[in-house]
Amino acid sequence: MSFLTELTFRRVASAAPRISATTFAPRVASASFVHSRNLSSTAPQYKTVTEAAKDTLKSVDRAVSDKLVDGINIGSAVADKAKEAGSDLANKAQKAKSDLDSKAQSAKSDAASKAEQLKQGAQQKTHEAADKAQDAAQEVKKRT
């Protein structure tokens, strides 16, 4: 055996009686303190102040952008509904105008027919009155 091997065996042999059974027993963690070890092969990479600020600004920018997009979508929906309501209102106005035009035309034709009837009635009464006047004039001539 080499010198190093012999020296290592002596140290282990002399240390063996000092090792107790509780040394290798699993440790029970108390309920109030749980210690966990992270296994990592590299050292943690901490961010610089500028990187942390950039990340914060990116997250704020993303949140603001999301809210702006939501606002734009809502505005677009409102504009579409307003256009639709305007179109419906225009259609209703056109229909009401056409209804009023047809009623006005009907009233105009009714008024024209009534005027014609009254005109004919007046002419007839005028002729009758003229006939009566002639008859009366002839009777007066006969008497005289």
Rank of each mutant, 00 (worst) to 15 (best):
S2A: 10
S2M: 11
F3R: 14
L4I: 10
T5K: 09
T5A: 11
T5I: 03
E6G: 05
E6H: 06
L7C: 01
F9E: 10
F9L: 03
R10V: 06
R10Q: 10
R11T: 03
V12D: 01
V12N: 05
S14L: 04
S14H: 02
R18M: 00
I19L: 00
S20L: 02
S20H: 05
S20F: 00
A21N: 06
A21Q: 10
T22N: 04
T22E: 07
T23F: 07
T23N: 04
T23A: 05
F24Y: 06
A25G: 01
A25W: 04
P26S: 00
R27N: 09
R27F: 11
R27D: 11
S30T: 11
F33K: 15
F33M: 07
V34R: 09
V34G: 03
N38V: 12
L39G: 02
S41F: 04
S41Y: 04
S41Q: 09
T42A: 06
A43E: 10
K47Q: 11
K47T: 11
K47N: 09
T48Q: 01
A52P: 09
A53C: 10
A53W: 03
K54Y: 13
D55L: 05
T56P: 02
T56W: 02
K58E: 12
S59N: 03
D61L: 03
D61V: 02
R62T: 15
A63N: 03
A63M: 05
K67V: 08
K67A: 10
K67G: 03
L68S: 11
L68N: 14
L68T: 13
D70Q: 11
G71R: 12
I72G: 05
G75A: 10
S76P: 00
S76N: 13
V78H: 08
D80M: 07
K81A: 11
A82V: 13
K83S: 11
E84V: 09
A85H: 14
A85K: 15
G86I: 13
G86R: 13
G86L: 12
S87T: 15
S87I: 12
D88K: 15
A90V: 14
A90D: 12
K92C: 08
Q94C: 02
D99G: 03
L100E: 12
L100D: 14
L100V: 03
S106H: 05
S106K: 10
A107L: 08
A107K: 13
K108Y: 04
K108H: 07
D110F: 00
D110M: 01
A111H: 03
A112W: 00
S113G: 00
S113I: 00
A115Q: 11
Q117F: 00
L118E: 11
L118W: 01
Q123S: 12
Q124L: 05
K125D: 09
T126E: 13
T126N: 14
T126L: 12
H127D: 14
H127L: 13
E128K: 14
E128M: 07
A129N: 15
A130W: 01
K132A: 07
A133L: 03
Q134H: 07
Q134N: 06
A136L: 06
A136D: 09
E139P: 13
E139R: 14
V140T: 13
V140A: 12
K141V: 09
K142E: 15
T144Q: 11
